[in-house]
Each structure stands twice: as structure tokens, then as C-alpha cells.
Design a protein around this nucleic acid. Structure first.
Lengths: 139, 139
DNA sequence: AATTAGAATGAGAATAGTTCGCATTTGGAG
DNA sequence: CTCCAAATGCGAACTATTCTCATTCTAATT
């Protein structure tokens, strides 16, 4: 089999398997850091010896978001961070000192969000819950 | 009594009662729109015949935030919106079609957030919960 | 394997939102 | 009423992101 997993993933998502997209997807799958800015991805490409324009990074990440491959978060600080979608939905707890991000999932909160949306006449499409605090290491 | 409420509020917050700060605070207290961008405030000042530089708007809103008079939110779209602090804490539900913002408060969610922070070894300082959906009018 | 049309990319300009630097003005303590 | 530190206004600078468009690449077809 010649086709890589990534090539298949992209095609299933309706995206041509171009070099920049493959490189970015492979990087996202291989890196230990789960929450990355566009700039982070750009630098990682450079470090890996691959030249990918920053505009392309933004375009590709936005396409990945539309295709459901990644999720875009708006943590404090004004810039977007991207996270590869794997496993199940979760929310985040961010350390305001060192920026560390932990993930959590709470069924009760999930349920109540739907209740609240219904009660307000909204059809819920998404939600963003981020807890800010100081992690054990920074206290 | 010569001192206005706003003058007192500012002094209590440790801020000199300057003209731009008074104008902005009065505007925030009088407007029906609770969630405003810096640009919104800037335009409101112009419409009211008051010349306040945009940089000053940003500085003052940031000071108000530090002083606890307003809260800054990062809804989708990249820019900050500010809300006068009055009444109790609440979270938001935002319509992704028309931008309408509703407020809600859910005790159960509040409690569970603290539990989750504790469980992860974080001392919680803040949180941001925004539900996105389509409001009744837009469906 | 060569052709080719349309999609994707790279580079830099453009834009939006926000902050900074500094000369000028202002608030309020004495 | 004076005076100094603090605050303001203005434009430049900055950051994150998007756009433009000439060039390159993908993949379907010959």
C-alpha cells in the first residue's frame, strides 16, 4: 500500500493531498504539544527543514477546522490555538502563569449546557468552557 | 452633594476622576447594550459629541478591568468585548447568526468547575463559559 | 508517461485590533 | 493658585490574520 494514512485522511475530508497539508497533518499527529498557534506550526515546519508559507499554515488550519480535523480555541491572549481532533470532546483548564493546558470532561456540565440552551430558545451548535487558574507547579 | 456617583466610583477604584474616564463610565452605565467593543465605545463618544482618542478608550477600559469595574470577554471573532460589572456573575450564550448575547447563571456548573479545578491541582482564578448556538429568531 | 485545467501555494501587501512613545494637558494636593 | 505627577491625544508601531495574484502542483485523462 502506497497511500499513507494522512493522504487518506485528507481525501476523506475532501482535501487534495498536497505537500503542505500532509506535512502539517503529520506534524500535528506526531507532536507532543497538543495546543499550537499558527506561528508554532510555522516554526515547527522551518525547524523540520520544510518551507511552508505562514499564509498557507493559516489557510490549511482553517480548512482542517472546517473539515473537522482540528478545533480552534480562543484562549486568553487574542490569538487562536489549534488542536488535533482525536478522542472525545473535552474542555480546558489553563494556567495563567505558565500557560499549561489540561483537558477535562464533565458529563454534568455537558448536560446542563444543553438544558440552558434549550431554555433560552437556542439550538446549541458549540460551546467553549475554559477554566483559568494557577497550576500546582506555579503556586 | 457635588460629587457624582461616577466620580466616587472612580476614586474608590483608585483612579483619578478625569473627563474621559467619567464619560466612558457614564456611557457604560446608561447604555442598553451590555457588551461593547472598544470601537463601539469610541463611536458612542463621537456620537455624543465628545472627543476621546481610541488609545484612551483602550487604556481606560483596561484600567476599569483591573479595577473590577468591567469584565473583558473573548467571544469568537478575535476582538474583545467589555461589559460593565453589575449584579452577579453570569456566563453567556451567543447566537452565531446574529450575534445576540444572552446571559445565564447555573449554580451546578459553577460548583462543578471548582471541583474540576481542585481535582487538577489548580487554584481557580476565573473561567469563561460561552455557549454558541442559533437563537429562536434566526432558526 | 505526458498533458492540462483547476486548485493550492508563496510572498508580500493589506487589514483589524490593539498598544506604544512622547509632547501636551489636566487633576488635585498643598 | 501653583505645580508635578499622572493622564491624554495623536500617530507610529505591532501582532495576528487575511487577501491578491503570479507561479506551481495535483490528479484526472490521454
Amino acid at each position: 500500500m502506497k497511500e499513507t494514512n494522512e493522504t487518506n485522511d485528507l481525501q476523506k475530508a475532501g482535501l487534495k493531498a498536497t505537500l503542505p497539508r500532509l506535512k502539517i497533518l503529520k506534524f500535528l499527529e506526531s507532536t507532543a504539544v497538543r495546543h499550537l498557534s499558527a506561528e508554532d506550526v510555522y516554526k515547527a515546519m522551518l525547524d523540520g527543514g520544510d518551507e511552508v508559507g505562514l499564509a498557507t499554515i493559516y489557510r490549511v488550519l482553517t480548512q482542517f477546522e472546517s473539515a473537522g480535523l482540528v478545533t480552534r480555541h480562543h484562549f486568553e491572549g487574542g490569538h487562536s490555538v489549534f488542536e488535533l481532533n482525536e478522542g472525545k470532546h473535552h474542555d480546558h483548564i489553563v494556567c495563567v502563569k505558565c500557560g499549561k493546558v489540561e483537558e477535562f470532561y464533565d458529563e454534568t456540565i455537558e448536560e446542563r449546557q444543553h438544558l440552558i440552551a434549550d431554555k433560552n430558545g437556542f439550538s446549541m451548535t458549540d460551546h467553549a468552557l475554559t477554566i483559568y487558574g494557577i497550576c500546582s507547579g506555579c503556586q
